[in-house]
Design a protein around this nucleic acid. Sequence first.
DNA 1: CCGCTTAGTCGAAACGCTTCGACACCGCTG
DNA 2: CAGCGGTGTCGAAGCGTTTCGACTAAGCGG
Lengths: 355, 355
Amino acid sequence: MATMHDVARLAQVSVSTVSYVLTGTRPISQATRNKVLAAMAELDYQPNAMARGLASRRSRILGLLMPMDERGLGATETAFVTGAAAAASSAGYHLVLSPVGGGDLEDLRRLASQRMLDGVVLMEVQLADERVTVLQETGVPLVLIGRTADTSTLSYVDIDFDQTVREAVAHLVGLGHRRIVYVNHSAATLASGYGPALRTRDAFVAAMTGHGLDPVMIAAEDSAAGGRAALAAAFAQAPELTAVLAMNETAIFGILGELTGRGLSVPGDVSVVSMVTSPQVAELATPALTAMTSPGSALGRIAIEALVRHLDGPAAERHPDGSAVERHQQLLPCALEVRGSTAPPRSRRPVRADQ
Amino acid sequence: MATMHDVARLAQVSVSTVSYVLTGTRPISQATRNKVLAAMAELDYQPNAMARGLASRRSRILGLLMPMDERGLGATETAFVTGAAAAASSAGYHLVLSPVGGGDLEDLRRLASQRMLDGVVLMEVQLADERVTVLQETGVPLVLIGRTADTSTLSYVDIDFDQTVREAVAHLVGLGHRRIVYVNHSAATLASGYGPALRTRDAFVAAMTGHGLDPVMIAAEDSAAGGRAALAAAFAQAPELTAVLAMNETAIFGILGELTGRGLSVPGDVSVVSMVTSPQVAELATPALTAMTSPGSALGRIAIEALVRHLDGPAAERHPDGSAVERHQQLLPCALEVRGSTAPPRSRRPVRADQ
DNA sequence: CCGCTTAGTCGAAACGCTTCGACACCGCTG
DNA sequence: CAGCGGTGTCGAAGCGTTTCGACTAAGCGG
């Protein structure tokens, strides 16, 4: 491994000059620059990231902390990651993903305190999230995807669940549906304070009552079986339902399966809208699902851009004691994409008894 | 941020002593150790990863290079990642995931040359994979998931596709199926030299002819539509088929949809086996799919363990010119898990014309 | 009681880079 | 022609660790 010394010697300049060529911190004449560049090329020189980081006190590495649970990353999360990676790379940063499990809060603190990460994006934030507290304590610049309950001191980017639900409901109501059931995440997830689940619940109630309709919500486990059970529960609570709005991307296949099992057709008998879903997943179903497409890659890009702006910003105070560090707080709506799973309700739908 | 100097001063010892307490490189008396530990606790000291890395020439960071395409990480890949992360963490390493897109070979070289990664695991290896070459050139310790065509100088862990296909076919043949169609990845994927697709193709031909049966393979695009088209093609080529073996996790939902669309029931009319699939995905379908479950987390764990063994090994030469660095080469089979999508074929299946 | 190992500690030299202060040289202005 | 601001370059002092050689004080066999 060639070092800057080697390059400097070969180019017959001082080490600092080589450094200036690399970083552009000070003006260097074209002639010198060329000599140095030539030497670097000849030696196949690559700067040592550690040394650079130590001396400059910035690693140019951004961390994306993603909880990795067993059910994997959907296309939504993936879009998010790729958007973030692209944004980071074009800002001259590396993005590393760190799969942080649930339990290791101490691990998180260590990771953040070791000064290896210039900044951090935290995904899947809960309304009350200890990880946020821990990260804030370490003083590492932080942007959230999702929001905690109190967002006053935080930067975040999140989906505009309110508007998303409102649009979805409007779409169904516009088609003529009156009896719409919302299949949310599980009761346990709701109880744990998972923001999207809670916010969509409230938004659904608001949207439905706004249309003068009765909001029926079912909590479903994140599995196909959960979806089936949810649909059964839905028919029990609202036998005359004509439309299902589902937040639970995993349960939706169970919902569809159960619908078919009951001899009901989609969208003939029941319309289905999937929320916060990627086109890829929506296309998996038969018929392809009308869905609220999440702004995945935009979300990632914006989060990183906010972080970078903070890092590269002029007077970016790291530990401002009360001083006004600018916060970036932004909501992005999902876009309605109509596919084959929604249609006007049958005008005189034959009432089927719940089996 | 407290430094070692601060700790040393507070504990009234030298800096090197603090370092020895931390690393255990040299014996330290219990009394001194306690003083130092107390000082560290009091100052909330966290070693600076950069400085440590610079001085010791090892970052204790392992990279998991994963191509992130638009269709996201399945549960299989996720299991893989979590397995790897757990193994890394218990070996005292951090695991970072780097989403490397397709094009940036130069980027890859830079990443690997910057001495920020002690070792690298590369996922989704193609039979002819330039990334492998690039990484080998940088001299960074490397373990592959998957294999290139020539594996002589490489360490890898991979799925035993041969055995997996053999078992899947045996399961179907054991049930009485004679006419089995294999739905592989797309023709383009095959042409690009994607190992799993090629190896399973060959294994399928071998397994079927071994049973005295005629192997029919269809290439399907990675989408629901691709699955539908594939099924249509399958019926065109083998109208009397009673079983489908699918490698293409994405296409399988299209296959199921098309089957239903044709009025065929699973497993009554046609049995379906999904290969290299996670239980989570298998459960999404109705009925739940009989599948060959991939050894995801074991794969990740083993890859990392092999890498760590190489790094922590006694005389681990980084650039051995011809010397025998031990290679780790291992194949893991997928496990057959029978669910609801396979059954004996109808003895006298009513022949349906292709629509 | 003498040299020899061994446990325990220290000081200083790296590690490979950034960055600060200094300085030389240039062409200008007044 | 003194003085000045700008440009281009250098040397050296860090950045926060690890690690090496050296030193001291015991402990011990002969």
